[in-house]
Structures are given as C-alpha cells and as structure tokens.
Write a protein that binds this DNA or RNA. Sequence first.
DNA 1: TTGTTTGTTATATTACATGTATAACACAAA
DNA 2: TTTGTGTTATACATGTAATATAACAAACAA
Lengths: 132, 132
Amino acid sequence: MLFIELDLQSETPIYTQLVDQIVEGIASGVLQPGDPLPSIRSLAEDLGINLHTVNKAYNLLKQEGLLQVHRKKGVIVQPDGMPGVTEAFEEKLRRQLRSLAAAAAVRGMAEEVFAQESRAVYRAMITNRGGE
Amino acid sequence: MLFIELDLQSETPIYTQLVDQIVEGIASGVLQPGDPLPSIRSLAEDLGINLHTVNKAYNLLKQEGLLQVHRKKGVIVQPDGMPGVTEAFEEKLRRQLRSLAAAAAVRGMAEEVFAQESRAVYRAMITNRGGE
DNA sequence: TTGTTTGTTATATTACATGTATAACACAAA
DNA sequence: TTTGTGTTATACATGTAATATAACAAACAA
C-alpha cells in the first residue's frame, strides 16, 4: 500500500473516499481476492486520520461482502467470490444513474454521449487488469 | 404541480430529493423553460415541510443556472438557455460514474451491461418529451 | 510466560449538516 | 392597505462525521 489519496478539503466524507478507492482498487485488479489490507491502526496512522474512520469504512465493505475479517489473517479482500448483481443493487444503481442522466440531459448532453461516457469510465477502470 | 414525492425515511436529504426531482422534471420535459414553480411557502406547505428546506433546494438550482428568481414572476425554469456541459460538470460526472462503475464491475456487471443500463436510464427519462 | 498487535466495543467531545420554528424586511400586486 | 413574494437572521433539536482515549479478548512472537 498505499494507492489511497485523501482530500481532506472535499465535501465527501473521508470514510466514503476510503470505501470508493478500495472498491476501485478491487475493480481495477490492483487488489486481488485474498490480498491483505493494512490493519485499521496502521492505515489510520499512515493517512493521518482516526482509527474509527478506517474502521467505519472497513465495516461497510465487510457488510457489502467485499472484505473479510479474519482473526488470524487480518483484513483481506473477499476470497470466496464477490457478491453478485442483486435486485437491491440494481435499484440503487439505477436511482443514482437517473440523477446523473437528468443532470446531463438538462445540460444538453446527448444520450449517445452519456452512454459512451459511462462505457469509457468503466473501461478505463478495468483496463490493465492482471497487471497487478 | 405536484409530481414531487418525498421519502422522509430516506437517508438522502429532503432538499436533495427536491433538487433531483426538479432536475428530472426539466430533463423529462414535464417542466419547460419559463414554467413557473410553486412559491417557497406554498410548496413547503403542500409537502408538509419547512420553508427553508424548499428555499435551500431552489437556491442550489438557481446557482446551477437551472432556475431564475424574478421579483415579479416568482420562481421559473430557466428561460434563457440551460447551462452547457462545462469542464467542471464533466469532472463531477466522471467522478460519480467512476464510483458506480467500480461497484458494478466488482459485482461482475459487464461493460456492455453497464453502458446499456446507463443508456436505458437516460432514454427512459427523456422519452415522451413534448408530451407536457 | 510476557509483550505486542489484531479487531472490537464503549464513552466522550467537537464540529458540521439537516430540518424546523419564528420573525422580520423590502418589494410587488391586488 | 393588505397580501404574498423572495430574502435574511436567529435559535433550537437532531443526527452525522471525525477525533480522542480507553479497554477487552484473541492471536501471535519473543
């Protein structure tokens, strides 16, 4: 570690930034199933933030099934298969996409451009997978 | 009015729900440029919420250039041309798309499905435009 | 054993966001 | 004048975000 960069001036909470960047790390392949993550305390110290802020982020990811917490191995990326696309996730995804699509449409961004933008962002995220 | 439906149990703030639904109203064509919106007080009363909560939503939309506030006409949908796709908006859009794309990719949603989902949400939003 | 590190839990505090409750102001319209 | 508009100010209650300590049991290393 650490590919994590925090913006303490940002309006998005620190624990949310942590969650996002870890998820992106898994999606991009930088973090592979079974890979260890820093301990709560060491990550908090490295980032200069509080223990509980890291703990909150880890717990959210654990509840989503993206992380496992072993008493032995510490915190690792889910090795037993990632959660699938549940109906609840689909709903949440669509609700957030609707908000973005509306903002884009109002500003005159065409359907093709919006769809292409989505595709490009996805592609840029998972390119160079396996590159560790 | 009113196509606005609030979920007071939701974790998303009331003023954010207001902003989203008004933007979606403009994007879908239900709200046309120049159309009047309810006064702050009347909308607050209709929705059973406080005056300042509506005011906050209206002000955010005013700052984004989606609403105008006339001392005479009251609050109306921007009649002098909507704001375009600025660089700042592009950045914000991409940042939020990245978060969604990562969550989708981690759960095994393929690039094509994600892009198609984005397109479908956009299309469903602006269909039956002009239908008032 | 002892010491250390792990995740976990509890408590307390500060700061900020959210939402409400009143009140008052200046401006425009009936 | 009376009413309704957006605007502004103040105050309050509640919840979230983040920090600061502290303690605990489980696992590991010396």
